[in-house]
């Protein structure tokens, strides 16, 4: 069958399997970022406002490093979104006449809501950057000439709507991560009858811990543990 040549470049772009690999690889990058981000955020519990501020300064210490990281993340996000959008278009075309009745037998809430949790999280990310990086939502607190992250966070989360949106986004993130975390293995071809069920449990636990970690911050601010 190799008698007929395949144009490999168009091939790649056209197959959804490849697009799913893009989703998986960019997903891993974003997941790695989330772990780092949460680890940094948790410094807020250190009791010393300077700890998290120093961490922020450290991140900003080398502009080339900072921008490299930002560009990598941005590219990952964009590719993740493009692939998702392309796949969503494929899906929309796949079933022109819908079912009058359709049950869900194997899927779960997380897998079915990926297409909604994704865009909402994306919107949240924009909001989040505007809020705590650019200071366009609530003015950033300043410590001298440097932004005071600690107090900016507290100022922000004291606004109930901001906290509520944050918490909602993190709940969705938890669902998105649960499905994404085990699904990425499947997409790159890793599956095993014994380990895949374990992987699913691990994904659920990890997504839950991550979400709890993030959500704890606005909750702590609102109930006054962090002040």
């Amino acid at each position: 069958m190799s008698a007929i040549a395949i144009n490999r470049t168009t091939f790649f772009c056209r197959t959804p399997v490849a697009k799913k690999v893009v989703m998986a690889v960019t997903g891993v990058i974003l997941f790695g970022y989330l772990i780092g981000h949460l680890a940094g955020n948790l410094l807020i519990y250190s009791g010393n406002p300077a700890a998290i501020n120093r961490y922020a300064e450290l991140l900003h210490a080398s502009p080339p490093m900072l921008w490299t990281a930002r560009i990598v993340l941005l590219v990952a996000v964009i590719l993740h979104i493009i692939a998702a959008a392309q796949l969503w278009l494929l899906k929309r075309r796949a079933r022109p006449v819908g079912y009058c009745r359709k049950e869900e037998t194997g899927s779960n809430y997380a897998s079915r809501t990926m297409i909604w949790s994704g865009p909402i999280i994306a919107l949240f990310v924009i909001f989040h950057v505007l809020h705590l990086t650019a200071g366009k939502i609530v003015p950033l607190a300043m410590a001298g000439h440097e932004p005071d992250v600690y107090h900016s966070v507290i100022d922000g989360f004291r606004v109930p709507m901001i906290s509520a949106f944050y918490i909602l986004a993190m709940v969705l993130l938890c669902l998105h991560l649960y499905h994404g975390l085990w699904s990425m293995f499947q997409s790159v071809g890793v599956s095993h009858p014994r380990y895949t069920p374990l992987l699913k449990r691990f994904a659920a636990t990890f997504a839950f811990i991550l979400a709890i970690g993030f959500i704890s911050i606005p909750v702590s601010v609102m109930i006054g543990i962090i002040r």
Binding site: T15, P16, V17, L87, L90, R93, G106, S107, S111, W182
Partner: peptide, 17 residues
């Protein structure tokens, strides 16, 4: 995989249905 794509039999997002 190319033919399945051509047929519009779309892609797997691991729902498990």
């Amino acid at each position: 995989v190319a033919q399945a794509t051509e047929e519009g039999l779309s892609y797997c997002s691991n729902h498990g249905e």
